[in-house]
């Protein structure tokens, strides 16, 4: 594990560096607080900082405050090493955001044990963050297709509409629905239906750019939010997605199955700024027209009376 040592005094710095190296730490050492701060907030920074209090530039306490303010994550474990031994110094040091406080001259056994405590806390922190990220993923993604779930893709659409309206850009919104999907479930069972949904998701994701978004909107409905579009390209893009599903049969455990998809398409530039709910209603109406006109096709939503089906 990488440890930062900040001490302006040469011998103390060298001593720390030598002992820490013996204990298996990788040591980076600096002579002042400003350098310590820069290193601790850099990418791939040391997770543990051993800071002298009195240093030129930022002192150790300043570094603690600045890191807590500017670098909440990943957590940095900071230990003040100082000759200041008055109770009010200890309190001030800890209140500045230091995790621990050791008075010079420190005992190597004690420092070593306290560093182990630091490592333990960092490991707990890492596990907690990992668990939180897993939960965050689960909360925003569909468990079958791993696409964004309905809540997440609709939130995202809302944000994109606001952003592109502000930046005078445009967003293409597509709502698609697998044709006659109920037949797949009824004929081959839900497990095969799931396989079709998973493969459809893969093909849709594979057909958009890395900065576009695909979500599972409902059972066999998918919502696509495409950025920085050229309005005239909206229908072409929709056709690409439609063909990605139609072109090759989907391999399932019950053999290859053909699938097709109908799509409602909307380009936000053709509309004033509208809420996601209204946009979704309009694009749903276009999808309905695509279905009514024989399925396996794309239909462009056109500005007309506000959608009342909310």
């Amino acid at each position: 594990m990488k440890v930062l040592v900040a001490d302006d005094e040469l011998i103390s710095r060298r001593k720390l560096q030598a002992l820490l190296t013996t204990w298996g730490y990788e040591v980076v050492s600096v002579e002042d607080g400003n350098a310590a701060f820069e290193l601790l907030k850099a990418p791939n920074a040391p997770r543990i900082g051993l800071l002298d209090w009195v240093m030129p530039g930022k002192n150790g306490v300043d570094v603690c405050r600045a890191i807590r303010r500017d670098r909440p994550e990943p957590y940095t474990y900071m230990l003040l090493l100082t000759a200041k031994d008055a109770k009010e110094n200890i309190v001030e040091g800890l209140e500045s955001g230091a995790d621990d406080y050791l008075i010079k001259p420190w005992d190597p056994d004690e420092l070593r044990a306290r560093l182990r405590t630091g490592q333990r806390i960092l490991q707990l922190e890492d596990r907690l963050v990992e668990a939180r990220e897993t939960m965050r993923f689960k909360a925003t993604h569909d468990h079958l297709t791993f696409l964004l779930n309905r809540g997440a893709i609709v939130d995202l659409l809302e944000r994109e509409l606001v952003r592109t309206f502000r930046e005078k850009g445009c967003t293409i919104v597509m709502l698609s629905d697998l044709d006659h999907f109920k037949n797949v479930n009824d004929t081959y069972g839900h497990l095969v239906g799931d396989e079709v949904l998973q493969e459809t998701a893969r093909r849709l994701l594979g057909s958009v750019r890395s900065y576009d978004f695909v979500g599972r909107y409902g059972g066999e409905e998918f919502l696509m939010v495409l950025n920085n579009c050229d309005t005239s390209q909206a229908m072409l893009r929709a056709e690409e997605l439609r063909k990605a599903v139609e072109n090759r049969p989907i391999q399932t455990s019950r053999g290859p199955l053909s699938a097709t998809m109908s799509i409602g398409v909307l380009s936000s530039r053709d509309w004033d700024h509208r809420k996601a709910a209204e946009i979704l209603c309009e694009v749903d109406a276009a999808l309905y027209r695509a279905k009514a006109s024989g399925r396996n096709r794309s239909e462009l939503a056109r500005p007309n009376a506000p959608c009342n089906a909310l």
Binding site: P56, A83, P105
Partner: peptide, 13 residues
Amino acid sequence: GRSAHSMKGAASN
């Protein structure tokens, strides 16, 4: 003061 502080730290080792 800074140099005196350094001397203090160095000698304390």
